[in-house]
Design a protein around this nucleic acid. Sequence first.
DNA 1: AATGAATGAGTCTTCATTCAT
DNA 2: CATGAATGAAGACTCATTCAT
Lengths: 199, 199, 199, 199
Amino acid sequence: MTVADRQRPRTKPPEIRREELMDAAQRLFLEKGFAATSVAEIVEAADVAKGTFYLHFQTKDDVLAGLKIRFIEQFCQKVDAANAAAAAGSWMHRFDVWMETCVFGYLDAVPLHDLVFQQFHPAKRGMKRANPIVTRLTSFLLEGRDAGAFSFVDARLTAVMLFNAMHGAVDDCLADGPSVDRQKLAGTVTDFCRRAVSS
Amino acid sequence: MTVADRQRPRTKPPEIRREELMDAAQRLFLEKGFAATSVAEIVEAADVAKGTFYLHFQTKDDVLAGLKIRFIEQFCQKVDAANAAAAAGSWMHRFDVWMETCVFGYLDAVPLHDLVFQQFHPAKRGMKRANPIVTRLTSFLLEGRDAGAFSFVDARLTAVMLFNAMHGAVDDCLADGPSVDRQKLAGTVTDFCRRAVSS
Amino acid sequence: MTVADRQRPRTKPPEIRREELMDAAQRLFLEKGFAATSVAEIVEAADVAKGTFYLHFQTKDDVLAGLKIRFIEQFCQKVDAANAAAAAGSWMHRFDVWMETCVFGYLDAVPLHDLVFQQFHPAKRGMKRANPIVTRLTSFLLEGRDAGAFSFVDARLTAVMLFNAMHGAVDDCLADGPSVDRQKLAGTVTDFCRRAVSS
Amino acid sequence: MTVADRQRPRTKPPEIRREELMDAAQRLFLEKGFAATSVAEIVEAADVAKGTFYLHFQTKDDVLAGLKIRFIEQFCQKVDAANAAAAAGSWMHRFDVWMETCVFGYLDAVPLHDLVFQQFHPAKRGMKRANPIVTRLTSFLLEGRDAGAFSFVDARLTAVMLFNAMHGAVDDCLADGPSVDRQKLAGTVTDFCRRAVSS
DNA sequence: AATGAATGAGTCTTCATTCAT
DNA sequence: CATGAATGAAGACTCATTCAT
């Protein structure tokens, strides 16, 4: 309460502060879970006052929403980059690259993925349709089929199943422990997926 | 508040009371989510007093655990029954039956499945290994391969991927709305899965 | 936190607890004002836990509403009793009794009156119409006019003006300090009021 | 956010800024109540930054005090003007003008009056003595009595009662809705008041 | 077996005010 | 004169759990 105690305002540009708060929140959410993390802990970790949090986010849920958007953006960038890099190869090669990128990408991000995709209440399953990875994969499959490289019944549903198969495999491996033979996993997944779309 | 209302003997056998509480809890959890449902609401729905809840369950989490066990038991029964009924057919036919049973079974139970498999907070991913459906499917795949009917790299991982592909497909369809062409969905899923394990 | 610390529940019938909480709240509201009194202080004064407060009231505002109802009931009882006791006298005498009862009643209750009639937000002026004292007084005036004892333009508006005149006079006297010549005040008020309705 | 939008010099003379802030505050206070209005809302409505508010007012209460002073000044001007205009008439006529002016003046300002006269918390009832309208009316009544036109027991208390009767009547009419028969109301009030002071 | 009043730590959120720029 | 990011004390309200009856 003394004059000495009162810290002078340590002003930063809003984007920086917001990012710092999101970083702190993400770390804590991953450690202890969303519900078990209090706003008090977030602001302490970010070294700001309680009120500062509410300068940048409407509610605690709001941070999670922000984290989700950030996660999706970053993941899409990875996939797009890998896809572009392999553009010259065969369709099957490009498909393998797709799935491998996803496997590796998720291996590094499964906890975060689960965090941001945790369904808040029920029903909002509709959100899943928005999954931009599935959307991209669907387009890719359709192009490949037009080129005679792939075969399947329903492009979108196939993309969904490929995505979930991959995701489940990664999940399962991680369940065994943190040390995973990444190449072996990727090999098994791509083999599975290739079969499922081979013409 | 009438004389008739109160003091009516409300004693019931423990198993019945427990079941009624679980039913009430399941309904509310599915409607509003686990975290958003309070014990107060559960006991109100089950028409018992607060204390009665704690006569049958240690904590709120305990009910969810009970719900999970009940769900798995019921689901396994369905799968086992269908599998037994198709035991005389070809391996591919039996495989189709497997996947179809899952599709139909999950179509009716996806929200419940998601509820009981919701990961609480930490990386209790180990739990997933316990999924008895995957265990059963793994055995089935191995037998089929021994009989020369199937081909794949890793039995367990393949079972995991098949399971997740199926689950994802059902999820995705449900996202569009409650009315689903069940046969068409089952057909697409079985086609996908059959490709993935064909020798 | 020790076992010794934990007080055993000191259960009381809901009506008693509710009354005790209202008493504590009323005392604090009168001392420090409604806004300046926290629920924490109320429960401390009533010697119960925070949660107990919310067992009996939905919100903090809810207590004030309860206080208002209680106040009105008690005030009406006083007026009705005095009115009944004077029923045998002349109309003018009964009118004097009316106003005197109000003057004395308010002298003892002005702070409480102001507390419970403090307008929360705007507009809810409509509430004032519900003032049962004014309603009673209106009826009384009409009966007296029918008997040829009173004269005025508009019964209800006259009742309102009499009530407010009385109330303002009491308020004004109280502003001078706590020691008031009650008889002199009552005399001045009844003189004023009698003139206003004399035929 | 365009270049044009920002950095436009926003400096204004202090009196203007202060007035604008008071206008914004008064509008919001009347809409939502004093307590329910935040400084943040005031500065937004006045289109200035938070800090600017504290350049012109010490605290939030300070604005309300300013509003009160402004209100009283304006109201007194109206009454004085009307009184001066009627100076040539009879005492009773002048009295009618007095009360009519008040009725009409309050009809347009009751919400504002209630706002600025809302007693904060303690029994700062002493403030009411300062009511300059009552002071003026007291003087007027005394002069009229000296001239043999009025009769009453206590000049000040009579002024208080007249004022409160008038105020209550206006309040009551407003409670019915925004559309009021102003002339009828004024008639009823002046009739009531005239009786109360007639010799 | 059943009750339900009581508990109290814990949570999110608000907002008047300050001050470096 | 003006700004607006930062502060942090304070407050209302929730809810899983207990236990005397």
